[in-house]
């Protein structure tokens, strides 16, 4: 009981803080400072239609590299903690196969879902979406496969190679930015092209494709490790 009342006190303290913040808050009416600079200079400077993409990939590119590293470390941690200690998986129990409808539907839909994910991250600089969203959609297609076929296992060498190559290429493109353009992860190592076309905005689509592949394979790896754990 005393534990519960302490919890209640803590939460009431937060209520007090949040209430102060809520009543003193003034809604924004105009863009200020760095946001104003980003929105006004971005079309001529970087040539990406989607300002959020330009910020994630170029202006705050180093942050994104850090975020991808955190994701990589978390995926590695999951794999390390759940590694099988010389035991064969699924021993002793037979899994019931899925119904015919589910299997046919999955086989039919999975390529299209993966294609949609790739579409999202290739068009990241033109419309809403990008590497993180597209990667998540690709991982959802993998989840679909895992749910339908109980014994399904990905080809680990392929997944690992895709992940490593895209991660390394991301850093290499960043270093090329130092050598050929203004700084680390500068997108102007490739010509900016015509505003609003698919081949525009310099290296932004290239970087977002690498991010998409990396995020997709990492999330798929986390899902598979959690599924087959024993």
């Amino acid at each position: 009981m005393i534990k519960r009342s302490i919890s209640l006190l803590v939460v009431l303290g937060f209520v007090l803080i949040f209430w102060k913040m809520l009543t003193n808050w003034l809604p924004m009416t105009d863009l200020h400072g760095v946001a104003k600079e980003y929105v006004s200079r971005e079309p001529d400077e970087l040539g990406a239609v989607n300002v959020v993409t330009a910020i994630v990939v170029t202006y705050r590119g180093l942050d994104t590299l850090g975020e991808v590293s955190v994701l990589f470390l978390a995926a590695t941690g999951v794999a390390l903690l759940l590694r099988r200690r010389g035991k064969k998986i699924g021993a002793g129990k037979r899994k019931r196969p899925s119904s015919e409808f589910l299997q046919t539907g999955t086989a039919l839909l999975t390529p299209f879902i993966i294609m949609f994910g790739v579409y999202i991250f290739i068009n990241g600089h033109l419309s809403a979406g990008g590497g993180f969203q597209g990667g998540a959609v690709v991982a959802s297609a993998m989840l679909f496969l895992l749910l339908t076929f109980p014994g399904y296992k990905f080809k680990h060498t392929v997944l690992n190679w895709i992940e490593s190559i895209s991660g390394a290429s991301y850093v290499i493109v960043g270093i090329l930015g130092i050598l050929l353009a203004g700084g680390f992860l500068d997108n102007r190592i490739l010509p900016l092209g015509e505003y609003g076309k698919i081949l525009s905005a310099g290296a932004i689509p290239v970087i977002y494709i690498f991010i998409g592949l990396k995020v997709g394979t990492e999330l798929a790896g986390i899902l598979e490790n959690l599924k087959h754990e024993h």
């Binding site: 979406g129 969203q133 998540a136 959609v137 959802s140 989840l143 999330l219 899902l223």
Partner: peptide, 10 residues
């Protein structure tokens, strides 16, 4: 898009 794909799905 991110929240729908990741938060609600994965």
């Amino acid at each position: 898009m991110t929240e729908a794909a990741i938060g609600a799905g994965l």
